[in-house]
Design a binder for these strands. Structure first.
Lengths: 225, 225
DNA sequence: TCAAAAGTGTTAAGTTTACACCCATGA
DNA sequence: TCATGGGTGTAAACTTAACACTTTTGA
């Protein structure tokens, strides 16, 4: 009896990470300037190959960790990219993931070693292969999910001001929002808790610092922003 | 110099299809009772392996065509499933797709030859591997997309009554809808066109038959149902 | 003549949007 | 004292939801 699987070819399976960060009111992506072939010298997403005994999700986590040093990061699968010629080197089916990280928590040394840098999302260079398409799909997905679930907090420090939070959502949606309406909505989210701490960086008066309480959110998960 | 790719393993890449149909007010899936190993005798999705020189999307289209005889079907990728042990036979990374078809247009002989049948979505048997999870994800995705884009028409005959259309959306959302509000919304969609034909199957009085005009939709794509 | 599905508008409730001024502070 | 960002409420516009009766016709 012939083996059921053996008549079909096998392929390298890759993972590529669209890594979002937020700083100074701007969304950025962590991109690599490739110092290796193929496509040496061009910009790309951080990627890698799935290994034996490693799930595709785990491969994505590993690849993210290799670049940023971070574990337990918020990640979502964007989808599989499987055109025949998407990688000119060899046939590779790749699964894209997006990650939301707090830029300040990433390991600067690792980032530098990989020749990676944060690029403002409005000024992205052309990317290799189909990586620009992956980014476009990831942005769409992230935008939709950000309007539905409180994932934006992953991009902020643990303590943040409401102005920061609003500026984050303005960056995600790409449009300005009304301050009073925004704060009204946040006020209804019991899991966005005002602390007694004050941020004195951003203004003379000082702004109240808030935190996201996931425990409370899971009890009453209502979110629409 | 060593080859960049060769240090990583390769895997079989599969595709699995969640095939939605609509009949008698009920959503159904086209499932296979496997007459081959592994998991012979159990229920599964229709699947196959990606071939050399074939994109993953094309593999999904081929697999769907092999079972239904249909081409140019509405399909969406659900995502990649990559757990290490998801297929007990051998390591397989699989990409799930959902398809929306008109049951009457599928090739009954082909369906029979594959030992496949339409199963009401409320009465699904346990499925092999992670196929139940694929189905769950596909349903969620399809529901969301159905509320945003006029994809439901793919499940109906070219001519349909408003009662059929409402009953379809009730099946998709799993909840009853108000007839007058529903018709009000449809009346605002210029691309849902009343024909001069009458359906006399469903009632003594007869119901006006409508059709979806994709040309008109693309000019003014507003949809919310 | 009646059973069965088709067809049709109005009102109340809820949600979303627009909008402008005072506050607290450090320089 | 003034420049800067922080903080606050109300009313109009719009959207959504609730609701019941008349029409047509084949059996």
């Amino acid at each position: 009896m012939t083996n059921f699987y053996s008549s079909s070819p096998t392929f390298h399976v890759g993972v590529d990470c669209i890594i979002f960060g937020f700083n100074e009111g701007e969304l950025s992506l962590l991109l690599l300037k490739r110092d290796f072939e193929p496509a040496k010298g061009e910009w790309s997403l951080m990627g890698g190959f799935v290994q034996t005994g490693e799930s595709v999700d785990d491969a994505a986590k590993r690849v993210l960790r290799e670049l940023t040093g971070l574990e337990k990061v918020y990640m979502e699968q964007v989808g599989a990219f499987g055109s025949v010629d998407r990688d000119p080197g060899e046939r590779v089916v790749s699964v894209a993931y997006y990650a939301l990280i707090n830029i300040n928590e990433s390991d600067r040394r690792l980032v530098q070693e990989h020749n990676a840098s944060w690029v403002n999302i409005g000024e992205l260079p052309p990317l290799i292969f189909d990586h620009s398409e992956m980014v476009a799909r990831a942005r769409e997905l992230m935008k939709r999910q950000a309007s539905t679930e409180p994932i934006g907090f992953n991009l902020l420090p643990k303590l943040f001001t409401l102005t920061q939070l609003q500026s984050l959502y303005e960056a995600i949606y790409g449009e300005p929002m009304d301050k009073r309406n925004f704060r009204k909505r946040v006020a209804e989210m019991d899991y966005v808790e005002k602390t007694d701490k004050i941020d004195r960086q951003s203004s003379r008066r000082g702004a109240a610092l808030y935190k996201f309480n996931d425990r409370v959110y899971r009890k009453a998960p209502k979110f629409k922003i």
